[in-house]
Amino acid sequence: MKYLFSPSLMCMNLIKLNEQISVLNSKADFLHVDIMDGHFVKNITLSPFFIEQIKSYVNIPIDAHLMVENPGDYIEICEKSGASFITIHAETINREAFRIIDRIKSHGLMVGIALNPATPISEIKHYINKIDKITIMTVDPGFAGQPFIPEVLEKIRDLKRLKDDNNYNYLIEADGSCNKNTFQVLKDAGCKVFVLGSSGLFNLSDDLGKAWEIMIGNFNG
């Protein structure tokens, strides 16, 4: 299996923005941009404007992860800014899930659905066939550096079984505390995409190219 890596840009060193974006553009599979509104999670990080600023410097897909209470307000602006994926939380859309998913697809974008650690797969069962990527939050969302929640591994295994049994096409992604201590259990459970944050990538070395090589060594064991 080919595994995919999606560095979380909220964890990068913004003083070295040009240098780090250049490194990631040559090595990563996606770029993960967390957009928070201070309500759904008690933090505010990046924005669609940030996507617009980096888009012309990269040629890999950008995933806009909407940790916001009203994701419908962000769809068109994220599309115009240059996002390829829009990942929205099931906890925020289930009153109008089909409408929002269809809006995202109407712009030619890929649809991701994120599930918080305590949110069951049953919340998305009626539209799981329409999803391109399912992001399992392996920490409670909002802040970098939180401890891994091992109870989510059962949910990842269940998603893998559902995918295999029904020939679904969604990618299974883990977001939160993906690092040398958790890579193997996440792989064994069925993850294909790994969101890399502070512990998994950015804090491994001041030289991001070197940090990437350390991460790959950790990933491969």
Rank of each mutant, 00 (worst) to 15 (best):
I75Q: 11
F148W: 06
V111P: 10
G72L: 01
I62N: 07
I136E: 07
S81G: 03
P150I: 13
E79T: 15
H126G: 12
F148Q: 01
I88Q: 00
I149T: 11
I134A: 10
C191M: 03
H107D: 08
L162K: 12
S81H: 01
N116W: 09
I62V: 13
M137N: 11
Y127C: 01
A144F: 02
L159C: 01
K163Q: 06
L171F: 12
D188I: 01
A90E: 10
D63C: 01
A114I: 03
K130E: 12
I121P: 13
S81L: 01
S84Y: 13
E96P: 02
D63G: 03
N129S: 15
A90N: 12
R161K: 15
N181M: 06
P61H: 01
N70D: 14
G108Y: 11
K155V: 00
I75Y: 00
E151W: 10
S81F: 02
P120G: 03
I136K: 09
N129H: 14
G190V: 07
D165K: 08
I134M: 06
T135V: 15
L66R: 09
F148R: 00
M137C: 06
D132Y: 14
K80M: 07
E96L: 13
L186G: 00
F202S: 05
H89K: 11
G108S: 00
V193F: 00
M67R: 01
D165S: 12
I86G: 00
